[in-house]
Design a protein around this nucleic acid. Structure first.
Ligand SMILES: [Zn+2]
Ligand SMILES: [Zn+2]
Length: 733
DNA sequence: AGCACGCCGACT
DNA sequence: GTCGGCGTGCTC
């Protein structure tokens, strides 16, 4: 018998191995196989009587690693689906789905397996044999310091044949793990009462769960309307049906507070995939999910690959969040994969958001999803009032300097709020002190030597840092172009905001939460958020990190320092993103009844329709005008896109290739080719970049075109050109 | 992705 | 002379 095995290396095909006689093993099981000079853990994909490959020697499977399959058919289907849809090797998909699971621990140990060194040992092997005999056991790594690998392999083989040594290969699947989940399904805390609106929607969810068929709900509930409580109820019900549940959240929302909330309800059965898990812990969770011992799973997008035995419910919270899109070698959209997986598992899917993606809303309009809405806040509080502050106009009227981040209106509002004993949140989606350092004499902006972007000024660290490649140089006073002492920090940043705020209100208790303060250990996110919630801080300022989900009862004023930071990006979703992010931030304000919230948005473009929609809480109005724009411009959700990118370390090589493509790319049916054009971020990590946008004109024809286009690109490109592509792209930099 | 093989610059 | 840099090509 032969086995086709998927390996976690970027291969488009399965490899064929010989199944040792008398082995009973089912597809989906982990196996150890030889690959070239090394060994790999792979997944047995299928078994056949005839080899699926006959162009060389077929080697045998070395070991069946587990008694039962880890990847059931449903999960293998998902991985194949991803490989086909996103046009990437099945091996890469496997590696993305199971990071670490399949990795053998690099250090093989070699044990001396004999009391002495027999005389029969050939002279060439003596030095190695003596070394091993003396030490009794050594890691392969240590040996490679003294022996070149091919020689070592050869000598070890000989010693092995003589029965003098024994190899021990470590695979963490064998390690005992420390994250045992006890088996119990008793809810720990009792559920709070639902509002009339909530219980109405909860009933619809329950009915759908009872049917145990695939169905998708879009749960569109305003901020603070109690979506989480509906998720919790749905999970409770699916557990009663004896099925498992998966909750996907954006990476940034996977906070101790969120975990606690679920733990209080489902403690006994919960597995949380957070980024600090070791390979062994992660693998142990996988086994417990397969065995049905873990019944509720929470994680970011990659938890979609967990090996559920009987998945009955998937919840995608904040379904519009861009972090569901994985970038890199396997660029999948986690939310979309939830649809594929739920359909295959006959599970109920709930996509929840206060600001649903246009894709999901379109699916509702086309009848593929059903809509559930929550229009009232669970506490009975009203939505905050929103005002837009025209920064440019205030500067022109000399009411503020153009270097100021806080307008007089916002300053006054902060003071009023603090003196009323309430709290303030200031949002600015830019870390560092300023995004660039300019020369006021010659206009020079200090750039990254490896990328075509300006270096961000970090005042505390006294560094200029590239936010794309992490290049750093010391902060300087002298302009590198004209040699004058004339550099000044241009543009906003959270560090500068903090500086301005502490000179404005030196006595206020404030904290800054962004990647820099967290990484430097200055600030602990959990305790800071808790302190703010408990009223031990007056002002919290920061980036994305403070925008999500948290409930701060004393918070009544939200200030958005500069709305444009998300607006001016080379991305047709810029307006949608801005609307979503600002609505989300605004939703932090005034969540308790009787304490109305106020939101002040500072902007250089106050009439922009995305901001106007935030002002009036007009989701429908925004969605309609945005959809109109998308339709006219031929963008998603009306036309699918694929982005083909290429780059080269030499400018000329790239330019030539772009020219070649312009001349030689044929017109393809049912798609439109836009480009190649230089990428908005033209140089990144010393590579010059171009992109070619493929727009689908007739539904269902994108892949046909890509299957013609990609081989053509490969054949035209020389080895200096690096090619990659992204189906349904979210990033256009 | 590893890991080999292979062909050119600075060193015991 | 050879040690080692990483470019190219293969792995059932
Ligand atoms: Zn850079
Ligand atoms: Zn200058």
């Amino acid at each position: 018998m032969f086995a086709q095995v998927a390996l976690p290396i970027p291969l488009r095909t399965l490899f064929t191995y010989l199944l040792p006689p008398d082995t009973s093993v089912a597809p989906g099981t982990l196996v150890l196989v030889p690959v070239g000079q090394s060994r790999q853990v792979g997944v047995l994909w299928s078994i056949s009587a005839q080899p699926a490959w006959n162009e060389g020697e077929i080697r045998p499977i070395l070991e069946i690693l587990e008694e039962r399959p880890l990847l059931n058919e449903e999960l293998r289907y998902l991985l194949e689906w991803i490989a086909n849809y996103y046009l990437c090797p099945i091996g890469s998909v496997l590696a993305a789905a199971m990071p670490g699971h399949l990795r053998l621990q690099k250090r093989r140990r070699i044990f001396w397996n004999h009391s002495s060194i027999p005389d029969t040992v050939p002279e060439t092997l003596l030095p190695l044999a003596q070394w091993l005999h003396k030490k009794q056991h050594l890691s392969e790594e240590t040996l490679t310091h003294k022996y070149p690998r091919p020689l070592l392999q050869q000598q070890l083989q000989q010693l092995l044949r003589l029965g003098l040594i024994r190899l021990e290969e470590k695979w963490h699947g064998r390690q005992e793990s420390d994250c045992i989940i006890p088996a119990s399904t008793t809810p720990c805390t009792t559920a709070p009462r639902l509002t009339a609106e909530q219980s109405c929607q909860a009933q619809l969810i329950e009915q759908a769960l009872q049917r145990q068929q695939f169905h998708t709900f879009l749960l569109h509930g305003i901020t603070g309307s109690g979506k989480t409580e509906l998720y919790l109820r749905a999970v409770e019900q699916v557990l009663l049906l004896g099925r498992q549940a998966l909750l996907l959240v954006p990476e940034i929302s996977l906070t101790p507070q969120l975990i606690q909330r679920y733990q209080d309800r489902f403690q006994a059965t919960l597995a949380v995939f957070h980024s600090r898990l070791s390979d062994a812990q992660r693998f142990n969770y996988w086994q417990q999910i397969r065995d049905g011992r873990a019944r509720v799973v929470i994680g970011a997008r990659s938890a979609i690959f967990a090996p559920f035995a009987d998945l009955g419910l998937i919840v995608v919270d904040e379904e519009h969040d861009p972090s569901y899109k994985q970038e890199g070698s396997v660029p999948y959209q986690g939310r979309d994969m939830a649809v594929v997986r739920a359909r295959q598992a006959k599970a109920l899917l709930i996509l929840g958001s206060a600001t649903p993606s246009l894709e999901s809303l379109t699916n509702v309009r086309q009848g593929r999803y059903s809509l559930l809405t929550l229009q009232q806040r669970a506490t009975g509080a009203l939505l905050p009032t929103v005002e837009i502050i025209p920064t440019a106009e205030l500067i022109r009227q000399q009411q503020m300097r153009f270097t100021d981040l806080l307008s007089p209106i916002l300053r006054q509002a902060i003071q009023e709020t603090l003196s009323a004993g309430q709290q303030v949140l200031l949002f600015l989606n830019r870390r560092g002190f300023a995004p660039s350092l300019l020369c006021r004499r010659c206009g020079h902006a200090i750039q990254c030597p490896h990328c075509s972007v300006t270096l961000t000024m970090h005042k505390e660290k006294k560094l200029l840092i590239c936010h794309y490649c992490d290049y750093r140089q010391h902060l300087r006073d002298v302009c590198p172009a004209c040699g004058q002492l004339s550099l000044f920090a241009f543009g906003p940043g959270t560090e500068r905001l903090q500086e301005e705020l502490s000179s404005f209100l030196p006595d206020a208790r404030s904290a800054r939460l962004d990647r820099d303060t967290v990484a430097s250990g200055q600030v602990d996110p959990e305790s800071t958020l808790n302190a703010f919630r408990d009223g031990k801080l007056d002002i919290l300022m920061g980036t994305q990190m403070i925008a999500k989900g948290h409930h701060f009862p004393g918070l009544t004023l939200v200030g958005v320092v500069q709305a444009e930071t998300t607006l001016c990006q080379p991305d047709f979703r810029a307006a949608e993103r801005t609307f979503q992010l600002l609505t989300q931030v605004a939703g932090r304000a005034g969540r308790e009844e009787g304490q109305p919230g106020r939101v002040l948005i500072q902007s250089y473009d106050p009439t922009h329709y995305a901001l106007q929609a935030v002002l009036t809480h007009d989701v429908t109005g925004f969605v309609n005008s945005e959809l109109l724009y998308r339709q006219e411009a031929g963008y998603p959700p009306f036309h699918r896109l694929a982005l083909l990118r290429f780059s080269s370390a030499q400018l000329q090589t790239g330019t030539d290739f772009a020219q070649t493509l312009k001349e030689q790319l044929p017109a393809l049916e049912h798609v439109q080719l836009l480009g190649p054009a230089p990428a908005p971020l033209f140089k990144l990590r010393n590579r010059y970049r171009w992109q070619l946008l493929v727009k689908e004109l007739k539904s269902g024809q994108l892949h046909r075109a890509l299957h013609r286009l990609l081989p053509l690109l490969h054949s035209l490109a020389n080895s200096r050109i690096r090619l990659d592509w992204d189906v349904d792209p979210y990033s256009f930099t």
